[in-house]
Design a protein around this nucleic acid. Structure first.
Lengths: 195, 195
DNA sequence: GTCTATAGCTGGATAGAC
DNA sequence: GTCTATCCAGCTATAGAC
């Protein structure tokens, strides 16, 4: 969104990236469904045959973006929790980072969770999602939580935060600060749970 | 889903309904994007010109389904909270009903929140969503909460529950009972909030 | 690794008969 | 209120030249 995809003429070193950026533009403009290989190729400055050198088909490009989403989340959420010194703070930071990510990367987020791709058909995507969850449990675990408890909490905080993120994007909670705060409050409550 | 849409030949009394049922079938089979007027018409046993007697265009049919979703939610969530005798119980019941609804009516739910329609373009949809939220605040209000507090709580519980609903549908929390329980726990925590 | 060209299909929407 | 017929646009995907 910030990186201008240069008005290219012929060949760039990185068509994959140009196509994926164009795809995100399309999703941002037209909604989760508004993506087409043809239009993305047009915007990347290549013909619509070119993508097939890099992707098996249309879905494959989308799947690549979903993977990118998981990778970015792993990085951002990990960074957000890094400096926390107890599980509650870690989960609070995670919740805020979750909502913030959805706001910052709304196209990617919508694409990942808008049902645009059938994740069952892409084992690597499915697996990346699982791995993300497990990676994120490491921090709270390192801060003293049991394995299973940490996994449960991370999953529940993620779920709850997801709802606040969606409600923010949908305009039900228009104010980002409110959404961030609400997600954090919910996360801290879940973290204090003793059941 | 339970009502077989009869193998019709010509004219039914209720093409609108037949088309909308077919649309939900399509969403269930192919994902939130898998809907097309052509295919829905085919399944309803009419030509693809017929829908235009009932809908301005493709989006109009989808919008009608989103309205149906809001109407059903209003009814189901209202019923769920009915017998509650204090705000916490009401919100707990609301949370469970929210997740249960998503599970029962997953096609309708995905369609409503999967970005299939641009709600901005349909003022009636936007308004129905707002009204739903306000209607739902009545019960907790009747049980003693202040107006603003009730609205905030209902919105936050809805958001949190939404996340659990989505995570259940996405397979992150595969077990429905777990999702229901987790949503309820989160709701009760939010309800006990004093900030 | 990208281009041109093309095949083949599906979908949205309209006009006019019944 | 549905049908037939038709138009046009857009998309996915492949073949073969450069």
């Amino acid at each position: 969104m910030t990186a201008t995809p240069r008005p290219v003429g012929h060949h760039h070193g990185d068509l994959r990236n140009a196509l994926e950026e164009a795809a995100l533009e399309l999703v941002a403009e037209r909604g989760a469904n508004g993506f087409s290989l043809s239009e993305a190729s047009r915007r990347a400055g290549v013909t619509k045959a070119a993508p097939y050198r890099h992707y098996a088909d249309r879905e494959d490009l989308l799947a690549s973006l979903v993977l990118r989403c998981y990778r970015m989340q792993e990085q951002r959420f990990g960074a957000a929790m890094e400096s926390a010194s107890d599980p509650a703070d870690a989960l609070a930071a995670f919740a805020r980072a979750y909502v913030q990510f959805a706001a910052d990367e709304s196209a990617l987020f919508q694409l990942t969770f808008g049902g645009s791709i059938r994740k069952q058909d892409h084992p690597d995507v499915q697996e990346a999602g699982d791995r993300l969850l497990h990676t994120l449990t490491e921090k709270p675990r390192a801060l003293g939580l049991e394995d299973e408890r940490s996994l449960d909490l991370v999953r529940n905080v993620a779920a709850s935060s997801h709802g606040f993120a969606v409600f923010h994007l949908e305009g039900v909670i228009p104010d980002l600060s409110s959404a961030l705060d609400a997600a954090e409050v919910a996360a801290r409550h879940l973290a204090s749970d003793v059941s």
